[in-house]
Design a protein around this nucleic acid. Structure first.
Ligand SMILES: [Zn+2]
Ligand SMILES: [Zn+2]
Ligand SMILES: [Zn+2]
Ligand SMILES: [Zn+2]
Lengths: 150, 150
DNA sequence: GGTGTTCTGTTATAATATAACTCATCCAGG
DNA sequence: CCTGGATGAGTTATATTATAACAGAACACC
């Protein structure tokens, strides 16, 4: 099993030092959005996050949460999952990785696996003279638990 | 340069024989959606396609175009580009490939490159005991033309 | 001619995302 | 001090993307 409390603390402290180093602000809204994603430990839609914020009296309109997510994504602390139109806290913040996501269509869990750069996308881009800026690598299927359950 | 007329004809004839083989119908709406995507030779949003259909008196409501797109995607004739929430005719229909997309953020062109199976996604999945059903591989950046222009 | 199947038409609405403007705060330069 | 720029939050309204739900046409099979 996984020590979720210490995993959250580590991620938050990484976020703090990252923001301090970059000279940007981890404001209460931004910090709370990151905490929510870390606590849930799964991908949440922007409006799910917004509902949580609203319950806590912290910014009741969509732009608030979308701006916070933009910030966290630019900082590399959160990833957007294109396949789900959802967002998840990075599970390997600060490790210099390309994110690869495995999304279970049954239990909806998202596994972020660390991967080195230099896969098919990079090779394809090189062949075409294309300069990559960001990449999306996502797979949908059945996770190990759901496979054994079935 | 690229002989677009013959490329469209080839793709349509592949679509016809594929549907005949599978015993499914390439109806007028479905065929026209595929033609539009082939003619444009780029990624179109569902509502852009819908506007074109409407002009031709062929199905004026969103469900019509979304249903046609579902069909064409299931048939492997069209791909959904997750990064753009858009759709593009497959440039390698019938060649048994995993789609890899290079999306230029400047000219919005989408390059579909053929790629073999067995990249990072598959390796990551194997390590996690995850059974892949579909994959998304997309990169955003600058295409060769836009790089030389800049 | 009934009966199941497939496809389309239509209305309404859900879910996701952004534009545009306002206001508060902080802080460096004068 | 006080002021002008920068940053971030609040708010209203709206744009964009996608689906639910149900009705009717067309056809195929028995
Ligand atoms: Zn990550
Ligand atoms: Zn699962
Ligand atoms: Zn393809
Ligand atoms: Zn370009």
């Amino acid at each position: 099993m996984h020590d979720h409390d210490s995993c959250i603390r580590a991620a938050l402290s990484h976020a703090e030092s990252h923001c301090a180093r970059e000279g940007v602000q981890l404001t209460p809204v931004r910090r709370r959005v990151l905490e929510i994603l870390l606590e849930e430990h799964r991908a949440l839609g922007a409006y799910e996050i917004l509902d949580r914020l609203r319950d806590e009296g912290l910014g009741g309109q969509p732009p608030v949460v979308y701006r916070a997510l933009d910030f966290l994504i630019r900082a590399g602390l959160v990833h957007r999952i294109e396949t789900l139109n959802a967002f998840a806290a990075c599970a390997h913040a600060g490790e210099g990785h390309v994110p690869v996501f495995l999304i279970c269509r049954q239990c909806r869990h998202v596994i972020e696996t660390p991967a080195p750069a230099g896969g098919q996308l990079e090779r394809a881009a090189e062949g075409a003279g294309f300069a990559i800026e960001t990449t999306v690598r996502e797979a949908e299927g059945l996770c190990a638990d759901c496979r054994t359950a079935a």
